[in-house]
Every structure is written in C-alpha cells, then in structure tokens.
Nucleic acid binder design. Structure first.
Lengths: 337, 337
DNA sequence: CTGAAAGCGCTTACAG
DNA sequence: CTGAAAGCGCTTACAG
C-alpha cells in the first residue's frame, strides 16, 4: 500500500510541488500546458491528496463530530440525518459517537474529537440534560469549547456550549393539551421519562401548568415516571393500569414511549383510540405508520439539522446570543381522536 | 483558539519535545522527576496532542469510514451499532456516510475517506448489491482497495473488496419455508424488493427453490416486486391484494416491508395472523415490538459487527480467503402462527 | 536517561 | 507564471 505523494507527481512532471498543489486546489495561476501535464500524471497514478497534511497546515479538517446518546432513538436519528445532509453540502464528514448517555464515555469521545481536530462538536443528550449534574462535567465542556466550538440542543447549561439550539417544547405541549381539552376530554395522565432528566422535568412542569389552565383533571396516580424507550412505555403503562381509575387520555414523554404504552394497553384489551387515547411527542418517522398513527408534536428536524451545521459556519455573524429557538408543531392523527 | 503544542510544553519543562512525546505515549524511559514535571505542565494547559500530526507520521488515523445506504434502515443500523461498539473497544472512531444508494455519492464518500486516510472502509449496500452494475464502479473500488482495505457485507462482486462478509440467507430462508410447511400452510406469496438488487434476486431464487422442495404452492400473481421500505410494503400488499385469490402466507423481503404489508392488510380488514400470515427477514429491533410481533430470520448482528471491525485488525491472519460466512437463525413469533 | 535532527505530505507567502 | 523554503505538530531512530 505505498502511496504516491505530491513529490512523485512534481518530479515526474518536472515542476515544483507548489505547482502541483496549485492545480489540485485551483489556486494561483498555472500555464495551461503544465496544468494538463500535471493532471495527466495525477490521473495516471490515481493520486489522492493526503488530507492529514493539508489539515495540519490549514488548521481545518472538514470533519465534525457528533456525540449523542443513541442513534437508534428516532429523535436523534432524524436530527443526525438532516445534519449529515447539510454537512455534505458544505463538504464536511461526520464522526458519529453513540454515548449511551454514559458521561465517562462522553468524555472519552470529547477528548478523541479534540485530538482529531474536528472543526466542531455537536453534543446532544446525556449530561447536558441532567438536572443534577456534577459541575466538573460542565467545566470539561467549558475547557473544550475554548478549542473547538460546541453546538448543543436543549442543553440546560448554557455555559457548556458555544451555541445552544432550543426547541419550543412549551408551545407544542400547550397546543397538545389545548387540543385535548377542545376534544372534550377531561381526565388526563402522563407517562414521563426518567426523573431528573430535563425533558422529563420541563414536560412535567408544562403538564401541570396547562392541565390547570385548561381546567382538566389529573392526579398523582396518573403521573408516572418511567424512561424513554418502548420498554419504558410498556412499564409505564403497567404502572398506570394499576391505579384505581383510568384517565381518558395518556400523554407520553415521546413517541416511542407512546408506542410502548399502546402495545401494553392492547395486551390488556384496551383499544386506542376507541377505549382510551394516547399522545406522543417528537413526531418521529414511525409515528404516522404505527397502528394507530400517533397524535404528537413535531420537532422541526429539517430546521434543527440545518442550524446545527450552519452554526459552525456563520458563528458570530448570524447569532447575536448563543441561543437559537426552533418552532414545534401539533400533529393530529388517530391515537387521540 | 490558540492551541498549545508539544513545543510549548517542552520549553516550559526545560526538556526536548522527544521527552514530552515519550511521556504522552508512555514509550521509552523518562526519569520520574521529569515525567511529573511534564505531566504537571500538560495538565496546567489542558494540552491535547494533535492527532493529525501523529497520524501523518504513523500512517494510522484510528478512524474507520462506513458507507451505507441509510442508517435509518434497521438492518444497517444494527450492524452499525455493533461495529461502533467494537471499534470503540479498539480505540477507533467512525465516520458515517449515508449514501442513499446513490452511486455518485458513494464515489464522493469513497474519495473523501481515502483523502482523510481512514484505516479502513466498510461498504454496505448500494452498488455492491446491484446485479446490473456498470463495471467502472467496481474498478473504482479495486483501485481504492490498493490504498485502504475495504470490508463489505453480502457484496456480489468479490473483487471489489478486501474482505466480504456473507450472511447465510439461504439457510435462513430454507428454515423459514420449512417452518411454514410444517405449520400446514400450502399457499405462499412473496413481496420482493426492487428488481435487479441482489437481495431481491437471491431471495426470489431461494423462494422458488424451497417452495418446490417443500411442495408448497405459489403463482405469478403472488410474487410481487416492490422495494425495501414500509411504503414499499404497503404498495406491495396493495398489488398482491388485487390478485384473484390470496395466499395463506405472505413472505416479505425484510421486516420493514412486512410491517408495511401488515399495515395495509389491517386497513382492508385482514387481521394478521388470524386471517392471513406474514413473515419478515432480518429480525430488526422492532420485530418483537410490532403488533403482531414478526416471525422472521435473524441476522447475527453482534457477530457481523464484530467481524466487520476485526477484519481490519487481523487481516491476513484470521482469514484465509476473503470470504467470511455468518450464520442466520429462524425466529418464530405471532405474525405466522 | 536525554536531545538534535530528520521526516510525515501538504500549502503558502515570498522572491524572481 | 514558477520554485525554494519554511512551517504545520508530531514521532522515532540515532548518538551520546
């Protein structure tokens, strides 16, 4: 696997490496005749420039790193996909790191990405959504962002990132509860995620706030903490099913949990939406395919993915402060009809 | 964003850069006293070595590239996840490239990965599953594999890769049809993927072969070409539903298509498995969650993911030829009961 | 145990 | 339009 270098090309073409570099990059002037000769030799050997050497000089690798809990989680998946699309347009490659929300693993990835000189780090989930985080995890990110810009989404520690993209979950949640109220339902329960995780705590807050505002009923037995997976939905539903009475609508922390809930309800003979209604959150790809299709709140993945990449390009210019807000949207389907 | 280099550390510690390099890498002997001093200064500045410079010298980047059609396709997703897990153990990072099976895009990614000097390329789907491929796409990969080892999965052009991992789909398919026959069903149809794609063509071949061997019935109307997505399943089911009679069992090219088929059957009032049976292929994560859970054939993702990475490490040693076969396994669940 | 020096493969002022 | 040379930040023989 010997590789030909710019020296080999230069020697054979009887020119300097500077010349070769210029034709490769289309920078500076080169006599047509020489250009052709050089191109011919490059082709002959299938010469490919070494990006390592170039990056070492240019201090730019055209690589971005993304650390997220789990790419199989559709929320992260869809952001990833949109981000990769945008990155491709701009000539960037992406190093994907699945952290499983393991903070030590996040640290390992962060270090590795810095070493590899990525042009930016996208950091989702895990520590930046932990309401009871040890401060050193934030300090670590504060140190790193001095070297590499960090973009986060729904991060609750502003100081941990260069730019933080925030989705307007409150608006989405409010619309959802308003919709439930307008449908005429009164009794509403909620399957939350893990305690102490920001998406759980903020949604709990919104839940209580808007249940009140729209004069709906709930009670402690109907508010259950669980997790963020299908299985968490199944477990959550089990717990809720053991309460003395049942609500008319079960709101869920996200779509995947909603699917688990529906699966469990189905097993005990409760049909959705005939016998009981369920709502999700996020509007993942599967939400419209699932039987029944899910009433949910859409995160604007296209927008998020685009901003997440653009943030590295147009830093300083586009964004006056380090917070960017992205809209959400109510989506009505079968599961809450 | 000025970064401190090994020179800065060396100067402040009053030693040579060689010394600093040695303590960073734990290579060569260093007096305890100096080591401590150096470590202290490294810590003080939060110095992180530049992997670009190191890789340039070492000719090793500890980065792997993976090109696949679509990470949201669970088959690729699960291979990816297992591969990343194994890569992490060995200290590699992964650059993920979603090609959408666009051959030009595959070329762009291939070139980019070679430039970035990845230590290996994993290439799935797209061109290497195209039965009517223009030869230049294979030639391109033959050129590339002279520079960087390429590992593929179920690639039909052996010369395009350094190592090709092949899953024993024939065995799995045979077991599946045998199971159907033993259940006492006679009439079997099949929703295939896109025509001219190897997974479609080989499964069609196995279908016809084993339908014959086990004395089952089929007919042209029950064999429909479609695609590989949920929507393809929906479309495929529509087509099959328009035939004069219906089979008892509908086999599907993969699990996702099976889900689309079940969704469509459900819409016209056919319950699975009560009214009609459906089988999938691949055993994706969702297969056991879906209602009804899917009878399918499991690809051994753990094994595949491990081998896909190990192949780069133990090349030459472990594998005598460039083909590695991985077993498949029949999984019986609700959808074909 | 330690350091000077060469080299990895590029790019870009700079001088001509 | 062209080339010599320095430099990007490391690592490793090699010599001491």
């Amino acid at each position: 696997m010997t590789k030909v270098t710019i020296y080999d090309i230069a020697r054979e073409a009887n020119v300097s490496t500077a010349m070769v570099s210029r034709v490769i990059n289309g920078s500076g002037p080169v006599k047509q005749e020489k250009r052709e000769k050089i191109l011919e030799i490059i082709n002959k050997y299938g010469y490919v420039p070494n990006a390592l050497a170039r990056s070492l000089f240019k201090k730019e690798t055209k690589m971005l790193g993304i650390i997220l809990p789990d790419i199989s989680n559709s929320f992260f998946l869809q952001i990833y996909q949109e981000a990769e699309k945008r990155a491709l347009e701009l000539g960037y490659n992406i190093i994907l790191c699945n952290s499983l929300s393991d903070y030590s693993l996040e640290s390992i990835f962060l270090k590795s990405l810095v070493e590899k000189q990525v042009d930016g780090i996208i950091f989702l989930g895990g520590r930046v959504n932990d309401c009871n985080l040890k401060h050193r995890y934030i300090e670590e990110m504060e140190e790193i962002k001095k070297k590499v810009p960090i973009v986060t989404i729904n991060n609750i520690y502003d100081e941990a990132s260069t730019i933080n993209i925030v989705t307007d979950e409150e608006k989405g949640f409010k619309d959802l509860i308003k919709f439930i109220a307008e449908k005429g339902y009164k009794k509403v329960g909620m399957i939350l995620g893990k305690k102490g995780i920001s998406s759980t705590e903020t949604k709990k807050e919104y839940f209580e706030k808007y249940i009140g505002k729209f004069n709906l009923e709930t009670n402690d037995e109907w508010i259950v903490y669980s997790g963020f997976s299908i299985n968490a939905g199944i477990k959550g539903a089990e717990k809720l099913l053991s309460s003395k009475t049942l609500p008319e609508v079960i709101m869920c922390i996200n779509d995947v949990v909603a699917m688990g809930v529906i699966r469990r309800l189905h097993q005990v003979g409760l049909k959705v939406p005939d016998d009981i209604k369920v709502t999700g959150f996020d509007d993942i790809e599967l939400a419209k395919i699932f039987i029944p299709s899910l009433t949910t709140v859409s995160q604007n993945y296209k927008e998020i993915g685009k901003i997440v990449i653009n943030a590295f390009i147009n830093r300083n210019e586009l964004y006056s402060n380090n917070k960017i807000i992205v809209e959400t949207k109510l989506i009505c389907r079968e599961s809450c009809n």
